[in-house]
Design a protein around this nucleic acid. Structure first.
Lengths: 205, 205, 205, 205
DNA sequence: TATGAATGAGGGTTCATTCAT
DNA sequence: TATGAATGAACCCTCATTCAT
């Protein structure tokens, strides 16, 4: 009833603590999901990793699925926010701008490595079986649009910049995935630029 | 052929029925795994879909995992065999040859559509948590080598043909995955060729 | 309908074959039950061992349990018949008679070894949880009575010969079981006689 | 004792409850295993008997086998501890000492009756198919050695005291098993002593 | 009569979720 | 609010038994 009345100040404090706990849980969840994959990860294990009781986790997330989705969403959102920074002040030269984008993306992949690994391992299922992907696609779309903006600088007319962006990011992703899969180092920006700068094949004269 | 015709007939008949049932089970499994994903699919459900009792499935496959692996492996192997046909009699013109490869691959994706959908959804978990992936990679490697052979026709020297093959197939896959995900039609061969035939970006003069 | 009419002669032949098959199945069952124990033995395995189809076994025994009970009963009955032979023409000297009994019993245990092993491993459950033990007890009782008859020769009065028989066979069994358990050779008749011939303990003078 | 009184109280309480539940489960298991035997007993049934959910049992014992082994081992260990008490202060007179041992053992059998019934029923399967038997044999060996120590008092030289102990306990066990099987009362100490005190048979003069 | 593929109830086990403390 | 013991539905798998051939 009058529950809220007398805790108006403490609430703020509680809020803060709550937020801390939430983050601790999410971090633990990331660790365990990366290690084991969604299905093999147990709430017990996540709780143990987070140094909380199972019940406590349920005070923050209503279900395992919800925890997982929150984790993915926040992590992707964070990734996305950071990614978008590179489009703030693009160099004038489109080639330099593209280089900056690629280099930034590689750097982010490096930083979010354990998340990306989990993402690759588990998210395709959601991707194809329709889960909470809408937000994720929206982010991706926003990123592609921004990249298309950069590509506009080249003034290419025969193909939409949006499509071009998609293809270029596709190549980038292909190389990244290949590296992760082979446990080899991520590609260098220069290497990628070289690939993009010339036709892959040509008509024989 | 008719060496032991007298006794082999009934055996052969049993073999045939067995093979039929096996296929029915694999088809049901494909449906259910596609619908639900590996973990959420239950043997009960697969059995029901196949119109068999659970126990029957275990007469053909020793475990759920084995069933899944057999399904993936057989389907991929078939896909691969068919894919490799295109390398049998390649046109002399490398461009024509590449076009044939791409067109053939698109066609196969169309034919194996529902399997590919399922496979993509589970691919990464399998990739990371190991399993039966070796054969699959071997197939893929064989395909890339063959593709590299085609690309040799272009006489490009600054990048290995193997790497080039990997990139080109990466682009192709990107476009295919995107199409599947968006439930839009697969790209046209010509469209892809155009992309490959010119640099994606260039230095501004 | 008139099925039976024309097979009246062949029936006899069929009977014989039937009996042969029955024995083959029982022998196979003995092998498998000894190897695996009742619960871990499967009808499949017994059928394979007997070179019959599972279904065929069910034409001879209505259930696994029935097969097991028939096996035990027949084996015990056979054991018993052979055991009782020693009482046919007992030596006049009671000591010699007892010696003959013991020696005969040890010999039979040797001959029925694999059955005895199975019996020990599985039968106690039936023994204590009331199964088909009545016949078995009847046999045992008959044997003890016969043994008591032999012991009568000693003219002991302070204890019933029946009880004495029970105790003596108990000692015998103890030694046999111990030997089986330790996988050491069965005891010698003489050794046992010596034990029986003197008090195990005495009052200190 | 009150070393860490402040924090250990709640822990201790939990411990106590845990121990209670553990005992309840073991008791239920004893009942069900007695009724049905190991194989026919189901975890469902044990859980129901214990008034717990199945899952709860698995919080205490990692598997059905482990539950069974814990049950047997604990019960036997307890039996053994109590048995060995009689060897603490043996009377000087060896006959009195032996009498005490026998009487004590009969008493313990009476007290652990329902367990012993179950144990006998499963004993042999365990014995032959290995498992946790080593500890049990060690207990038994310790007991036989102690009994041999008592028998030393008789100064018998023609047979090892260890062997004598084995035979005497064999007789004792025979009588006990027979009584249990026939659902007749256990034998009296005096009755057994009388048997031991004179030769079972003798040469006719 | 003999076969053996098919059956499906029932087993042991796991783990997301609940709720009394 | 935090706890974690308890829950029980649901999973994978086995195998005695049936029955169409």
């Amino acid at each position: 009833m009058n529950k809220d009345s007398k805790i108006s100040r403490p609430r703020k404090r509680g809020q803060k603590i709550r937020e801390t706990h939430r983050r601790e849980i999410l971090e633990a969840a990331l660790k365990v999901f990366s290690r084991k994959g969604y299905h093999r990860a147990s709430m017990q294990e996540i709780a143990a990793e987070a140094d909380f009781a199972v019940g406590t986790i349920y005070r923050f997330f209503p279900s395992k699925k919800a925890l997982y989705e929150a984790l993915v969403l926040e992590e992707i959102s964070r990734f996305h926010q950071q990614m978008m920074l590179v489009f703030r002040h693009p160099p004038d030269d489109p080639l330099e701008a593209l280089k900056a984008v690629i280099s930034h993306r590689l750097q982010l992949v490096r930083e979010h490595f354990s998340f990306i690994r989990m993402y690759l391992a588990e998210l395709w299922e959601a991707r194809f079986r329709g889960g909470f992907v809408k937000e994720i696609r929206d982010y991706y779309e926003e990123y592609l649009e921004a990249l298309a903006g950069v590509l506009e600088g080249f003034g290419r007319r025969d193909i939409s910049n949006r499509k071009l962006a998609s293809i270029i990011d596709g190549i980038l992703s292909t190389l990244i995935v290949e590296a992760i899969e082979n446990e080899s180092p991520l590609p260098q920006t220069e290497e990628i630029m070289e690939i993009l700068l010339q036709p892959l094949v040509w008509e024989k004269r």
